[in-house]
Amino acid sequence: MARRMDEEYDYLFKVVLIGDSGVGKSNLLSRFTRNEFCLESKSTIGVEFATRTLQVEGRTVKAQIWDTAGQERYRAITSAYYRGALGALLVYDVTKPMSFDNVSRWLKELRDHADSNIVIMLIGNKTDLKHLRAVTTEDAQSYAEKEGLSFIETSALEAINVEKAFQTILSEIYRIISKKPLSAEDPGQANIKEGKTIVVGESEANQKRSCCSSS
């Protein structure tokens, strides 16, 4: 198996993917980290994890992304993963009004469990299902403005705006982080024990099997 060179990065940003079950969180993650979309994907049980290293504002940033099960009962497990997260991608399905209505409950969940300075981005996914759309861009946009969230619509299936969504939230995090001096009291800087510019082996991209395993 081919091995990539070990990577260096300037920042490590922990981001969580949250939102109702079935809105496409896992496929947004696989599109972003492996450029894959799986039509035969399984519902997420507990948490999943993936990383990708990319350039943000001229810096090398490693995004460490935790994908969570969407069903309410799983919050008993998943809410522990909000702690230390610098960003949250709050996803709804543009064809499912209920998943948009529930956005406010997810925001409350973040307020209760996440750090107060967490950057939140609202994502309306599945824009490829044009004939089924039930949440308008305008409604979501104005809701996001009211709540002070950034907002974007994506299609993980057609790979539209997925890159942009992650780039945007990572840039926002970077702008906030880089304004502050790095200090031990900064709760957001995950894995601060390792310090800045760390050499860590990269393994995800090459070892991953196809997204569907057969059982």
């Binding site: 079950s21 079935g22 035969e40 994907s41 399984k42 519902s43 569907c212 057969s214 059982s215």
Partner: peptide, 9 residues
């Protein structure tokens, strides 16, 4: 919602 996401293969 989960039926088609259970043993999909």
């Amino acid at each position: 919602r989960d039926i088609s996401r259970t043993f999909p293969t």
